[in-house]
Computed example of a mutant assay.
Amino acid sequence: MTSALFEVNKKYWTDRAPSYSQVNQEELAGCQRSNWLREISRQIQMVYPNRAPQEITVLDAGTGPGFFAVILAEAGYKVTAIDAAPAMLAEAKRNAGPWQEAIDFRLMDAQKPTFTAESFDVVLSRNLTWVLEDPEQTYGNWHHVLKPGGLLLNFDANWYNYLYDADLKQQYEQDRRNVQQNDLEDHYLSTDIDAMEAIALQVPLTGIQRPHWDIRTLEKLRMRSITTDVSVWQRVWSTVEKINYASTPMFMIAAIK
């Protein structure tokens, strides 16, 4: 049985699928395609230095319109991509183009993947954990489907923490002004801000300082070699993204099972 919050979340991302897909299409056509592939491949190769991508199984948890799934499948990785919203999976399949058949797309709640234990060499995610109703349990479930010695790789940010912090609110508003002054696309205009803020106020990680929380959670799972990188956004984001999200820099957290 799903919760009311899960259904609200699912509806929001279902409604946003077309506009979010457009963002992924722009990433696939821009510098982000090579930036992200270089970053993710570097992390994977540090764990599996003697294995080819074709020998590495990857779970893209909460694939959305499929950006990670597409660039990793194109690079040769064996990718399984899951999402709870059928509309997102439909967009992901379209965005995959010639790589669609190489990706195992599945309709599945990324919080509760139903694969057998120790199924994947890598579990990765982007912009997902912050909006989950039980992120701690989700980390535990990802740990469950990860092979011993496998890599957990999560990219996220302290999205919507400005709802609890007046200084961050001012920084967020300055981002909006900077976007306008530079005559750039404001990425927040493609969202239903009221709906997103309402969801953010209900989920547990809004207002929590991360990645400190993630480190503690992964330590409880006895994961090893936990590392964080709070400057990863400088290497993967486009100039437009850096201006849009200056007050909400993306971080990376990596850990070994």
Score class of each variant (00 low, 15 high):
R126S: 14
W36E: 01
T57K: 14
S3L: 05
G64T: 02
V236T: 15
Q174R: 12
K11I: 05
K220F: 06
Y245H: 06
R16F: 11
H212Q: 15
L146I: 10
R210Q: 05
N95T: 07
I44K: 00
A84Y: 05
Q174C: 07
L163D: 03
M252V: 09
F120R: 03
P98M: 02
A17E: 03
L151M: 08
R51M: 04
M252K: 09
T227L: 10
K147M: 13
Q209G: 03
N182T: 02
V240T: 13
V203T: 04
N154C: 11
K78A: 11
H143G: 05
K112V: 08
S21Q: 06
E241H: 13
Y160C: 13
K112M: 08
Y139M: 14
Y77A: 09
Q234F: 00
K112P: 00
E197Q: 15
T63M: 06
A102W: 09
D104G: 00
I103R: 10
D165F: 08
F68E: 04
P148T: 01
N24R: 07
L5C: 07
A92Q: 06
L28P: 07
G30C: 10
F68W: 04
L218Y: 08
R177L: 13
Y20C: 04
Y139S: 06
N35F: 09
T57A: 12
E91M: 11
R33V: 00
G62C: 07
V47K: 03
T248V: 15
P204R: 01
R106K: 10
P49Y: 04
Y12M: 05
I71N: 11
P53I: 02
Y20G: 05
R224N: 14
E39N: 05
W213S: 07
S225F: 04
T217W: 01
W237D: 10
Q100I: 08
R106D: 04
A75S: 12
P49E: 02
D121T: 00
D229E: 04
K112D: 06
F6E: 03
A4R: 02
G97E: 07
Y172M: 11
S190L: 08
Q22I: 05
F120I: 03
P49A: 02
G140D: 09
L205Q: 06
L168T: 02
Q43E: 15
I253N: 09
L124K: 03
N50T: 10
N244E: 01
K147I: 12
Q45K: 14
S41A: 08
A254H: 00
Y20F: 12
E136T: 11
D121A: 04
S34G: 00
A200T: 02
Y48M: 01
K93S: 07
T116R: 12
M108F: 10
Q100L: 02
I253R: 04
A254F: 00
Y162S: 09
E39V: 07
Y162F: 15
A102N: 14
L151R: 05
L201I: 03
A255V: 05
Q32I: 03
W233S: 11
E173P: 06
R235C: 00
W36A: 02
V145C: 13
